[in-house]
């Protein structure tokens, strides 16, 4: 892990290249460094961190969404970067609102983000622009709503049993 100073150096480097608005915060919590970015800058900054930063992080290990309800903007997208050579990790996160949940896809940089971006869309409704196959992945393709959001109720849909099968509309299809 880069230490707190190292994180500030990375943030300063990113600010120099992409402007002051690109980095919206740095978090250092329990020896984990996380860089918070503005949503439009994510793709370019990740490309920079992968290829030509002073200390490159060449792998994307995990991409996942989360819901910061009731804070605004609600939805968060986390990128866990890894450097195999320096055995170092860096977290990158960004926040998007529910009304405009668009963010540029990073599949062109990290092909492994394909399934994970589909999962983040499926569960939280974060739309990744430029994704080659932006379908749902775990839920059925005709599903409506985003079940991992915090305002989606637990057990929010009727379970099909024999006794109530005729109450569920068009269950037979």
């Amino acid at each position: 892990m880069p230490d707190a100073t190292g994180l500030e150096l990375i943030a300063a480097e990113v600010r120099d290249r992409f402007g002051d608005g690109a980095v919206t915060g740095t978090h250092y919590f329990r020896d984990e460094a996380t860089l918070e970015l503005a949503p439009p800058a994510v793709h370019d900054v990740l490309a920079h961190l992968r290829d030509d930063a002073d200390q490159p992080f060449e792998l994307l290990m995990s991409l996942h969404g989360c819901d910061y309800f009731p804070q605004e903007p609600r939805l968060g997208v986390h990128y866990q970067l890894l450097s195999l050579e320096r055995t170092d990790r860096l977290g990158v996160k960004t926040r998007v609102g529910v009304e405009d949940p668009n963010i540029q896809s990073v599949v062109d940089l990290f092909p492994g983000a394909d399934f994970q971006e589909r999962e983040a869309y499926d569960m939280f409704g974060v739309v990744f622009d430029g994704h080659p196959d932006p379908r749902r992945i775990l839920m059925p393709e005709d599903y409506q709503g985003f079940p991992q959001r915090r305002d989606f109720p637990m057990g929010g849909e009727p379970v099909l049993f024999t006794f109530n099968e005729h109450e569920v509309p068009r269950w037979y299809e």
Binding site: F29, R30, T34, S62, H78, R89, G91
Partner: peptide
């Protein structure tokens, strides 16, 4: 109770 925060363990 766990103090507020977020972490990624691997």
């Amino acid at each position: 109770r766990v103090p507020p925060g977020e972490t990624y363990a691997a």
